[in-house]
Design a protein around this nucleic acid. Structure first.
Lengths: 336, 336
DNA sequence: CTGAAAGCGCTAACAG
DNA sequence: CTGTTAGCGCTTTCAG
C-alpha cells in the first residue's frame, strides 16, 4: 500500500524555503531566524507532518529500534522482563521489536539475520538451546548483541546479563537440605541452556557438601508448561516414592506440580515440600503458600537494555552482569 | 553508530553485473540467466549479504512491520493476546513493534503520531481511557488502525475486535443471581473504557431482569493490580457488609481480593462468592478454585492481526468482530 | 537477458 | 541565516 504523506519538499515549497531549512528547523540542528522557523512550524503543524523514518534511517544508518528475541512462550518471569525492557527502551527513545522463536533455533538464526542490517540497531537475545555458533558472524562484524537470561560462553564479544543461577540452585537445594530433605526431585524446563545447567551445578554442589550422592533419576524435564510440570511430578513421585521435596524451575510447572500432588492426595509440605523458581502472582494465595526463589526480572531487563545501549555506542564494550537470587520463604518448603 | 554492511553495489562490482541485476536475482523478480544468477548468489552468500531495509522500505513505501500499542501493564489475558498477535505477525512475515502506553493518553497520541508515516504499516491499538478523537487525523488519511479489546464508537472507519462485554457482564451477574446473590460487588479496572462500561451495562440488565435495584455503592475501582483489588474488596465489604458476591474484572485484582478475604477471615463461597474475569494459570489450584468468565485472547489477537492485514490491503475494509464470553465454572461461585 | 538512470525522503557538508 | 547539492541503498522503468 502506498502512503501519500506530506514531505519536507511540500513544506519547503509552501514556505518558500529550501528543504535543508525545513530539515534544520524540524530537527533544531542549526540557527534559523525566528521568522522562517515560525513559518515552517506552522505549516508542519497544519499538515500534521511527520518525518519519513525510512528515509531518515537510511540517511543516518540507524533506526533507533532494537529487537528483543525471546525463545519461549513467556512465563511470569519473562513477561516482567519484557515489559521492563520495553519501558527502558521507551525512556531512551528506542522502539522495541518483539520476536518469539519458540525454541526453534533455525528460526532464531533466520530472525537474527533478518534483524541484522538496518532493521534494528541492536538485539537483546535470550537464545534457544540449539547451537548458536552462527552468532560469530555478527559479533565479528561488531553488530551489537547482548544476551539476557541465558548465555553461551563459547560466543565471544557478547555481553550478558543473567541471574546467578549456580547460586540459585545451591541456595534452594541448601534450604531443602536444611529441612532434612535428602531425596530432592529437580524439574527443569529445557536442557542445554545455561539457566538449567547452572542451577543443576549449584544443586550438585549443595548435595556434595551435604554428602548426599547425586541421583540422575531424580532429575527430569517439565517443558516449562503446566501439563509438563504435572506429568514430570507424577513420573518422579511414582518412580521414586521416597522423594520428599521438589525443586521446580518455572512457575507454570509449579502449578502443574500442585495439580499432580493434589491428585495424588499428598500433603504439602508434610509429604512433599516445594520450592519453585520465579514469583507468580498467586504464589502467596495458594494453600499452602509457595516458597519461591527468584531473580529480579525488571533489573535484568533494564540492565540488558542499558548494556545494549553501551554496546551500540561502543562496539568493544563488554560487561557480564550476574544478579543474585533471592528467596521468598513461605510455607511449601516446611518453614512455618 | 555506522554500520559497514555490504551493499548491492559491492556485489554488483564483484560479479561484474549491474545493481539492477543483483536486485533481480535476490528478489526473484525477473528472469536472469542461470549463470549470472549463480555468480551473484555465491557472492551474496560469501558475504552473508542482507538487504538494507531502510533503503528497501523507503523505496517501497512500506515497512512490513506493524505496531501493537497496549495501554496497561499486561495481565494474563493481555499477555496471551500479545503473543497471539506476535505469532500471527510472524506467520505473515511482519515484524511487531510493542509499545505500552501505561494509560497515558498524551503518550499514546505521541506514539501513534510517531508510528505513523513509514515507521509501521499499521497499528493495533488497545486505547487508553482518555480522549482519542485525535485518531480522526489518521483515519481520514486512511492510515490502517484496528482497535482491539477496547474500542470507541465515536471514531469512524476503525475496525475492531473485542469481546462481547455486555454479554459477559450479563452472564456473570446472572450466574451469581441464580445462586441467590442479590448484593453483588463489582470491581472494575478503569472507568471510561468500553470493556468496563459494557460489562456494567450487562450487569445492570441482569439486575433489572431480576428486579433488583442497582446500587452505585456496590461498584468500585480496583486499578487492575493486586493491591488495588485488595483495597477495593476491603472497602466494599466494610461499607456494605451485606454483600454476598463479588464480580471482579481482572485476574490480578481477583488475587488481591482473595488476599483481603482471607485477611478478613471470610469463607469462599459461603460468606462471599466470587466470579473473576480472565483465566489465570492458578485459577484452578487455589482453594476454592475460582470460577472465571473469559474471552479468548488468542482468537482476539489473531483476528485483530488478520483484520489489520485486510485493512492495509484495502483502506476501506471494515469489520467489527465481537467474540462471545465463556464461563469456567469452578467452586468460588457456590457451584459444587 | 542485462544495464543505465531516476528517484524514494531525508541529512549534512559546503558555499554564499 | 539560507540554499545547493550529493548521496544513503534500493527498486523499477525503459532501452538496448
Amino acid at each position: 500500500m502506498k502512503k501519500e504523506g506530506i514531505t519536507m519538499k511540500d513544506i519547503a515549497r509552501e514556505a518558500n524555503v529550501s528543504v535543508a531549512t525545513v530539515s534544520h528547523v524540524i530537527n533544531n540542528t542549526k540557527n534559523i531566524s525566528q521568522a522562517t522557523r515560525k513559518k515552517v512550524m506552522s505549516i508542519t503543524e497544519k499538515y500534521n507532518y511527520t518525518p519519513n523514518y525510512s528515509a531518515k534511517n537510511l540517511r543516518q544508518q540507524s533506526t533507533k529500534t532494537v529487537a528483543l528475541v525471546i525463545s519461549s512462550h513467556p512465563d511470569a518471569f519473562v513477561t516482567e522482563m519484557i515489559f521492563a525492557i520495553e519501558e527502558r527502551a521507551a525512556e531512551m527513545d528506542y522502539n522495541l521489536l518483539l520476536v518469539n522463536t519458540k525454541e526453534h533455533s533455525e528460526y532464531e538464526e533466520k530472525t537474527i539475520n533478518l534483524l541484522h542490517s538496518n532493521l534494528v540497531d541492536g538485539i537483546i537475545l535470550s537464545p534457544t538451546s540449539g547451537d548458536i555458533q552462527y552468532l560469530q558472524n555478527y559479533t565479528k562484524d561488531k553488530f551489537p548483541i547482548v544476551m539476557v537470561n541465558r548465555y553461551d560462553d563459547s560466543i565471544e564479544n557478547i555481553p550478558r546479563v543473567t541471574g546467578d543461577n549456580f547460586q540459585l540452585g545451591y541456595d534452594a537445594t541448601m534450604h531443602l537440605l536444611d529441612h532434612g530433605h535428602e531425596k530432592i526431585g529437580f524439574i527443569y524446563t529445557y536442557p542445554d541452556v545455561s539457566t538449567t545447567e547452572d542451577r543443576i551445578k549449584g544443586h550438585h554442589e549443595a548435595l556434595k557438601q551435604a554428602n548426599i550422592p547425586f541421583d540422575q533419576e531424580l532429575i527430569i524435564q517439565g517443558f516449562a508448561h503446566i501439563d509438563g510440570g504435572a506429568a514430570a511430578t507424577k513420573e518422579l513421585l511414582m518412580k521414586n516414592n521416597r522423594i520428599t521435596a521438589l525443586f521446580i524451575q518455572n512457575d507454570l510447572m509449579t502449578i502443574g506440580a500442585l495439580d499432580a500432588i493434589k491428585e495424588m492426595n499428598l500433603r504439602i509440605p508434610d509429604d512433599i515440600a516445594i520450592i519453585g523458581f520465579g514469583e507468580f502472582s498467586a504464589s502467596h494465595i495458594v494453600d499452602p503458600s509457595i516458597t519461591t526463589i527468584v531473580l529480579p526480572p525488571e533489573t535484568i531487563g533494564k540492565t540488558a537494555f542499558d548494556i545494549l545501549l553501551n554496546k551500540m555506542n561502543n562496539p568493544d564494550y563488554m560487561n557480564h552482569v550476574e544478579l543474585p537470587p533471592f528467596m521468598n520463604i513461605r510455607k511449601s518448603c516446611g518453614c512455618q
